[in-house]
Computed example of a mutant assay.
Amino acid sequence: MPLNLPPRIGPQPKTDQEPPQLQYSDISPPHIVEALKAWAFSALDHAREEPTRISVPTARALWLDEAVAASPDAFMPPRGSREFAHFHEDGSMHVVLSDEDERAVMSANWGIPHVYRHKGVKEMLIFAPRDDAEAETVKTIVQASYDHAMSGRF
C-alpha cells in the first residue's frame, strides 16, 4: 500500500539543479532538524547514524546494519552502500523509496526526484519540514524508506 500523505501547502522550495541538490528556501528551523534526526537515529531498529558516503560532509546518513537482509534496490550509491536516507543541515533529505511511494511523495508535493535520476540515481529529495506537523509527515516518509530497505527480509 503506498504512502497516504497530506498535501504539502505552498510552492516547491528552491533547490539545486546540480548535485548536491540542497534546498535554499523554506528551510527547517534548527530545532525541527535536530528533533527529526534524533527520532530517526533512535527509532529505527537495525539502522544507525553514519557519515554519508554520497552527500556533502555535513550530511548524516541512516545506514542499515549489514547483518540484516535487505532489498537490493533500496540504497544510494556507491555500490555496496547501506545508506537508505541522509539528512542535510537545511532540513531536506534524500531517501530511497519504492516506485509507488515515490509517486505518492510527488503527488502530495513533498519531494522531487534526484537531479541525476536520468543517470540511474534512484533517490528523492524530500523537502524540509517547516513545523512540527510537517515533521510528522516527513517521519512517515523516512519510515517508508526504512521499510523499503527492510523489505528484503520478508
Rank of each mutant, 00 (worst) to 15 (best):
R82E: 01
D26Q: 15
T15R: 13
R8Y: 11
E50L: 09
S55P: 02
A69C: 06
A47D: 03
P129F: 08
V96K: 07
I27R: 10
E136Y: 06
W39M: 00
S42N: 14
P77R: 14
F127T: 07
E50D: 11
V115M: 09
R82G: 07
T140E: 13
A74L: 07
P77I: 04
S55M: 11
S25P: 04
F84L: 14
L62P: 05
I32G: 04
H31C: 00
Q23H: 06
L44M: 09
I126C: 10
I141T: 10
T52Y: 13
L5T: 02
P2N: 11
A35C: 01
V96W: 12
F87A: 05
W110C: 03
K119H: 12
T52W: 10
H118E: 10
G120C: 08
H114K: 07
A43I: 00
A43F: 13
G152K: 09
V142W: 11
G10K: 13
V95G: 04
M150L: 15
I9E: 12
R60G: 00
D73T: 01
L36W: 05
F41R: 08
M106R: 14
A61S: 13
A108T: 10
A85W: 09
A47I: 00
D73I: 01
W39C: 02
H148N: 06
H88Y: 12
E89P: 15
T15S: 12
G10F: 10
S107W: 06
V138K: 07
I112G: 00
H94C: 01
P6H: 05
N4G: 03
R79N: 09
D132Q: 15
S28I: 02
A108N: 10
E100R: 03
S55G: 15
A40Y: 12
A43L: 00
F84N: 05
E66V: 11
E49A: 12
A128Y: 11
A144C: 06
E134D: 09
M1K: 13
P13S: 06
R8F: 10
F75R: 03
G120P: 13
R48Y: 11
E18P: 00
D90I: 08
R82L: 11
D101T: 07
A128L: 08
P2G: 07
H114Q: 07
D131H: 15
D101R: 09
P57Y: 04
M76G: 05
T15Y: 13
K139C: 03
N109W: 04
